[in-house]
């Protein structure tokens, strides 16, 4: 090298803290995502602390307001003791909305986790094995994807009967193909990509290649999709409930089921529609906001 030549390295203005650290920082600067966190916090907090938040018992029947004419039946409009009113049987709507968060969270989360596991398993096998196994598994995925969303869930619940585990499985099965496709596609694309080729050519061991290079890169779309799927799952669970396929136990209130029971009173008691409906929307908005925020912050190329 010529004498006196100076190599200069510019100090990066901000130290990079790796993919996850950067993503986390970007997420915290993403205002919609933060709002999503707030909504999810309200939803999860309500579900976890339901017994503390709810003033009454979700299954108990309470007397009508004192000024109701004798012989009148529910629903009764909101008043201080029953903030969201009382349903047809006189149960406290507020308490039921609060407890409803538990079912939504439980079934929603359960079905997405379950869906990610089945779908991820199938996708990983297909993506890693390739060839014939890939072909067969992906045809199965195609079949499941051909059946429109909630219709598949309806079929499965009709087949397995009503109940929380059945609903969870039904929604999980409708989710799973998406994750299978995502993981498979990601693995295939990455397997062929230049940087894995590069890593392989400099002798990075296969195990390290899988754990450090391939998995993190195919995982990010799964994380985003799972967050967004939580929103869909909550809506689908409520949809099943609305169609009369919700959990049968009256002591475990479910938002969709509560809505079905109230459609007849749309004119007289809109509050019985409004509050459970709002609860569903807030939960779904929360996960959708967070999912979008995650997508933006996990993809470093997706800059504004």
């Amino acid at each position: 090298m010529a004498s006196g030549t100076v190599a200069v390295v510019r100090v990066a203005p901000r130290a990079s803290r790796g993919l996850w650290g950067d993503a986390w920082r970007r997420l915290l600067r993403n205002r919609p995502a933060l709002l999503g966190f707030v909504f999810i916090g309200v939803f999860v907090g309500t579900a976890v602390f339901a017994p503390l938040l709810a003033p009454h018992d979700p299954g108990a029947l309470y007397p009508p307001p004192p000024d109701a004419s004798s012989g009148a039946t529910g629903p009764y409009p909101p008043r201080p003791e029953h903030l969201m009113g009382q349903d047809l049987q006189g149960r406290d709507e507020f308490t039921r909305v609060v407890y409803g968060a538990r079912i939504s969270l439980l079934v929603g989360l359960g079905s997405v986790i379950f869906g990610v596991i089945i779908g991820g398993f199938v996708g990983a096998i297909a993506g890693a094995a390739g060839g014939r196994a890939d072909n067969v598994l992906m045809r199965v995925v195609d079949v499941l994807l051909a059946i429109p969303g909630i219709l598949l869930a309806i079929g499965i619940v009709a087949w397995l009967d009503r109940g929380l585990p059945q609903i969870t499985i039904a929604v999980a099965v409708t989710n799973a193909p998406i994750f299978a496709r995502l993981l498979r596609g990601g693995l295939l694309a990455i397997r062929e990509s230049d940087y894995v080729l590069a890593a392989r050519s400099v002798g990075v061991p296969t195990r390290r290649l899988l754990l450090r290079h391939m998995l993190p890169n195919s995982l990010t779309p799964i994380i985003v999709a799972a967050t967004l799927a939580l929103a869909t799952a909550i809506i689908d669970v409520a949809g099943l409930g609305f169609l009369g396929l919700g959990p049968p136990d009256p002591r475990t209130p479910e938002w969709g089921t509560m809505l079905t029971d109230s459609t007849k009173f749309l004119r007289a008691a809109p509050y019985l529609i409004f509050f459970p409906g709002l609860a569903i929307v807030i939960s779904a908005v929360g996960f959708n906001l967070l999912g979008d925020g995650l997508r933006e912050s996990l993809d470093p190329r997706l800059k504004k």
Partner: peptide
């Protein structure tokens, strides 16, 4: 965002309430 977050039945019932029950401009 609201579009993908509001379930069909919630939106349907809301529309019914606003336009059919309250405003009475469209059939329920």
């Amino acid at each position: 965002l609201l579009g993908i977050s509001i379930p069909v039945f919630v939106l349907g019932l809301t529309l019914q309430y606003i336009f059919a029950v309250q405003l009475k401009v469209l059939p329920a």
